[in-house]
């Protein structure tokens, strides 16, 4: 029988993928783990119970991150969907699409640093609203580019058919376009949520340390060399997207195909 090395490589691949998640959970439940110990002296739920009682602020950071990410995802998906229609049907579509790429391709932290003066002038500097607005500015181009492929000739024909049959613009939007775009809207919402959820550089510049999202917390704990709380923040940061990925894969992608 011919020897196959594929199962070994695949097992290694699965271990490599799962290892970061397992290690973060292990580190978040560890304490007194000093060099050269390979395993921690304490392993339990002490760190996890402390986040509810102590002043680490992790729960408030978690809630704040969810509020900011949901706001950014909702506004950018909706506005991206609506505005991409005008851009896609415009005679100068290619120029406008090209313009959309500039903020999308630029490093968010540099974009934020150059925009910080305007946030300072408008009183949005160091506030959650400011962070939402700034993150919206990088999530919106993504949504716009994402939906540009939706507005094709087939969709246009559907719109014309609805108008011919007596439907007004509101009915066309609610009863034809929205149902057709449901899957894409969900994927875009998920992606823009992640753009906001993972954002660090831009949030640190516009939030100036006052808006402490989970990514900011992770960095603060790393700077303090508090690796156990750092890992705990990492767990809070990575497990909601895992859940979203599962939902997306199970209920959205499969239904789209």
């Amino acid at each position: 029988m011919k020897f196959s090395w594929k199962p070994f490589i695949l097992t290694l691949l699965v271990v490599l993928i799962v290892f970061p998640f397992a290690y973060m959970v292990l580190l978040s439940m560890a304490s007194e783990w000093r060099f050269p110990d390979v395993l921690p002296n304490y392993f339990g739920l002490r760190n996890w119970t402390q986040i509810f009682s102590s002043e680490t602020g992790l729960i408030s950071s978690f809630v704040l991150s969810i509020v900011i990410s949901l706001s950014v995802a909702f506004t950018s998906t909706l506005s991206g969907f609506l505005i991409s229609r005008s851009v896609s049907y415009h005679p100068r579509k290619r120029l406008f699409t090209l313009l959309t790429y500039f903020p999308y391709i630029l490093a968010p932290v540099v974009f934020a640093a150059c925009l910080s003066y305007f946030f300072l002038m408008t009183g949005l500097f160091g506030s959650a609203t400011g962070v939402i607005v700034a993150q919206f500015m990088i999530a919106f181009p993504y949504a716009l580019i994402f939906f540009s492929s939706f507005w094709n000739e087939r969709i246009r024909q559907y719109e014309e058919l609805t108008a011919t049959l007596g439907g007004n613009r509101r009915q066309t939007f609610l009863k034809v376009l929205l149902p057709l775009a449901k899957g894409m809207l969900l994927i875009c919402f998920f992606q823009t949520f992640l753009i906001s959820w993972f954002e660090y550089g831009l949030t640190s510049i516009i939030g100036v340390g006052k808006v402490q999202t989970l990514t900011i917390k992770v960095f603060l704990f790393i700077k303090e060399a508090n690796f156990y709380y750092g890992a705990l923040s990492c767990c809070l940061l990575i497990f909601p997207p895992v859940l979203l990925l599962y939902i997306n894969k199970r209920y959205v992608f499969n239904k789209l195909i």
């Binding site: 993928i17 970061p20 973060m24 992770v218 790393i222 750092g230 990575i238 895992v242 979203l244």
Partner: peptide, 17 residues
């Protein structure tokens, strides 16, 4: 599904890891 999991890890967590 497993191959999608790394997408849930942001740069800051990967750097920390």
């Amino acid at each position: 599904f497993i191959i999608y999991l790394p997408l849930a890890i942001p740069g800051i967590v990967a750097a920390f890891f």
